[in-house]
Structure formats: structure tokens, C-alpha cells
């Protein structure tokens, strides 16, 4: 229900399509200026650049998700409606996760075209990595986003709290993509092991979110 509400707002306002996806595209373009675009540098760094772009965009999406709640007292309305805090967490996770998956698809297209990287060699690995990493980004992001929302300093606080915490996701997802995108036909086992780590991370923070959302929603 919460997920449907958030996604409906998203669909009607089209902020993601009109602002976040173009933002991610700008990030991809800027990376090209960091080095020699023709030297294969971009293709080699494509996995890492892809995930940095995802993290930066996720930050924007998270801010937006909680700005929505705060704007018209949506959070209080949810509480009055008797929605369980854990359900709010799961609902928001689904909504933000869905938005990020759309974003990742757009970014995948971007790195394929701009960086000449091929994501289709090990498609199952790429998809599973995206799914687990998205959950791993969304779960801690929602906990910290809920915490920072309503604060005057939220725009500066959330990046400081969020980015170091998701560093393992950045490492894991990048390594997994590196295996998947490698031009030589290497074995994929390493990538699946990183997926295991991502899964563990996502699981831990989802559990933490379900527990912690109750005290978090009590106030502000």
C-alpha cells in the first residue's frame, strides 16, 4: 500500500524520469572528462563508475522519498491510519527499490553506449548483482533517510551517514560487475561470491530496518 502510494506519486510527478535519470547521465558524462576517453580507461572503470553513479542518484532518490513524506504530513497520516512501522519500511523499500532498478536500467544503457561496455555476457550475474545491491543500498538508506528527514541539516547529513555505510555494496557490486563485464571468458564464480556478500549485507540491514523503523517513526 505504501509502495503503491509512493510509486503513484512518482508516476504522476515524473521526477525520476525528468530529473534523476538525466542527473545520472550527467554523472556518466563527467566521468569521461576525468581521463582519456579513447584509451579503454572508461571501459575498464565502467563497473565502478556505474555503481558510483547509482549511489549518487540513490542519494537524490532517498532525499526525495522522505521529502514527500514530510511535505503534507504524510508520515502522521500513515501513523493515524495504523500502518505498522515495519510495513512502512517494507513499502518504502519496494518503492525506492523499484525506482532504482529503473535508474540502473537507464545507466546500464548509458555505460553500454558511452563506455562501450557489454553487460550481456553474464546477464544472470548482472541481474542478481543489481537486485541484491539495490536492496543493500535501499535498506540502510531508508533507515538513515528517515532519521535525517525533518532536520534542517538533512541535505548535508545524509551523504555523510549514508555513503560510508554502503561502501561494502560499492566494493561488492563493482567486483561482481568486473567479473561479469570482463572481456576474457573468465569463470564467474568470484562474482557469485560477491553476490553472497551483497545478499548478507542486504539481509542484515533489512532486518535492522524492520526493527528500527518503529522507534524512528515515533518522533518528529
Amino acid at each position: 500500500m505504501v509502495a503503491a502510494k509512493d510509486l503513484r506519486i512518482e508516476w504522476r510527478s515524473r521526477v525520476v524520469v525528468n530529473q534523476v535519470v538525466p542527473f545520472a547521465a550527467v554523472v556518466l558524462l563527467l566521468f569521461a572528462f576525468a581521463g582519456e576517453p579513447d584509451s579503454g580507461f572508461l571501459r575498464r572503470l565502467a563497473p565502478g563508475l556505474f555503481w558510483i553513479a547509482v549511489l549518487l542518484s540513490a542519494l537524490v532518490v532517498l532525499q526525495r522519498s522522505f521529502a514527500l513524506e514530510m511535505a503534507d504530513g504524510g508520515r502522521d497520516a500513515l501513523r493515524v491510519a495504523g500502518v505498522e512501522p515495519a510495513a512502512v519500511f517494507v513499502g518504502k523499500a519496494i518503492a525506492v527499490g523499484a525506482v532504482l532498478v529503473v535508474l540502473e536500467a537507464a545507466l546500464a544503457l548509458g555505460v553500454t553506449i558511452l563506455y562501450d561496455a557489454s553487460l550481456t555476457r553474464a546477464l544472470p550475474l548482472v541481474l542478481v548483482t543489481c537486485l541484491l545491491a539495490t536492496l543493500g543500498v535501499v535498506a540502510p538508506g531508508l533507515i538513515l533517510g528517515a532519521l535525517a528527514s525533518g532536520l534542517r541539516v538533512r541535505e548535508t547529513l545524509l551523504p555523510l551517514l549514508f555513503l560510508p555505510v554502503v561502501a561494502p555494496v560499492m566494493i561488492g557490486a563493482t567486483r561482481s560487475f568486473e567479473v561479469a563485464l570482463a572481456t576474457d571468458e573468465g569463470p564467474l564464480g568470484e562474482g557469485w561470491r560477491w553476490c553472497g556478500l551483497l545478499g548478507l549485507f542486504a539481509l542484515a540491514y533489512t532486518a535492522l530496518g524492520v526493527v528500527l523503523f518503529e522507534p524512528l517513526l515515533e518522533d518528529s
Binding site: 540502510p140 533507515i143 538513515l144 532519521l147 532536520l151 541539516v153 547529513l157 551517514l161 560510508p164 555505510v165 561502501a167 561494502p168 566494493i171 561488492g172 556478500l197 548478507l200 549485507f201 542484515a204 540491514y205 535492522l208 528500527l212 522507534p215 524512528l216 515515533e218 518522533d219 518528529s220
Partner: peptide, 30 residues
């Protein structure tokens, strides 16, 4: 961040936990 005490305590406790859970994962992944 200045706030009402119970609010501030709650925020601090949540961030403390979120950070601490990350310690072994960060260590392992790095």
C-alpha cells in the same frame, strides 16, 4: 544536532547501531 533529548537519543542510538553492524562487513569486504 540540537533537538529534544529523547529525539536526539533515538537518532544517536540508530546511527550507532547502523555504523556498528557495518564494521565486520566493511572489514571483510575490504
Amino acid at each position: 544536532i540540537p533537538a529534544e533529548r529523547s529525539v536526539r537519543n533515538r537518532r544517536a542510538a540508530v546511527v550507532g547501531l547502523v555504523a556498528f553492524v557495518d564494521v565486520p562487513v566493511v572489514h571483510y569486504s575490504v
